[in-house]
Amino acid sequence: MSLSLDDVRKVAKLARLDMPEADLARMQVQLSAILDYIDQLNQLDTDGVEPLAHPLPVRNVFRPDEPTPSLPVDAALQNAPSRVGDYFGVPAVFDTDEPVSH
């Protein structure tokens, strides 16, 4: 197994994914198989090869800094799980008070 159960638990936490213990164990088996497959890349000597992050040359694209109309507030909030006035309602960040909801 190239991944331990603890590895999977730690990465799930980093990725902000709440997962039942049984799912973590299944994930460990499946991800280990995938990582074993991926390990074939180590057969290749890539010393001195430039990494390629993008298939085509990409450059910064600039535009004049001119204000244009943005999404109206109602359109921006239409999919909000919780709306408070003209704001998104979210749970408290620094304590465990109940989330604001309407």
């Binding site: 890349l41 290749l44 890539t46 090869v49 430039e50 990494p51 390629l52 992050a53």
Partner: peptide, 9 residues
């Protein structure tokens, strides 16, 4: 990083 190098190849 290894994957990006092989992507170049």
């Amino acid at each position: 990083l290894k994957a990006l190098k092989v992507r170049r190849l």
